[in-house]
Nucleic acid binder design. Sequence first.
DNA 1: ACCGGGATGTTCT
DNA 2: GAACATCCCGGTG
Length: 192
Amino acid sequence: MGRLPRDFFARDSLEVAPELLNKVIVFGNCRGRLLEVEAYKGADDPGSHGRRGMTPRNEVMFGPAGRLYVYFTYGMHWCANVVCGADGECSAVLLRAVTPLEGLAEMRTRRPAARRDRDLCSGPAKFTSAFGIDGTHNGSDLATADSGVELFDDGTPPPRDPGRSTRIGLSAGAELPWRWYVRGCDDLSRRG
DNA sequence: ACCGGGATGTTCT
DNA sequence: GAACATCCCGGTG
């Protein structure tokens, strides 16, 4: 129970990812439960931003665990990762979908295109947009909540038998089964 | 339901 | 200059 400590994140991203399912993310008035995640690594992961080593964009991925790596993509979208592993190692988990719990009215004003509540956070860039998370949060620390973004364990355990699949939207590294999700939810980024 | 294309601009080759 | 860890809209069946 309570805010997730740094030690929770300071492990292999393949280990952390499925345990993030059902954890609660909070920012401002918005609160939601993590439903879908993907693990990324470094040089050994052809689908990772870190595959060719450190650059100005991805340097947070190489830093201490528990920080947020937020990047801009397709000219208009932000995506958020939780940094994992040891300091100096490239490792992170992409937060791909959330079930909205609180702050839905605020989410709707930020995401007028969402027709139904389950469309508010059913994708990595939908979720950041709904919560108001963007590049100003890159590098912020979840363990101290220095930017206001926090991850909580509210006592709901991760699924005993989570759904698992290949990662979404990649050209290289698409064959690795590093995506996990809560089965049976209708607000995943895709049908589970 | 499923598919195709356009939006939009940063990052790295 | 190409690629991009995406989303939305409008077509068709």
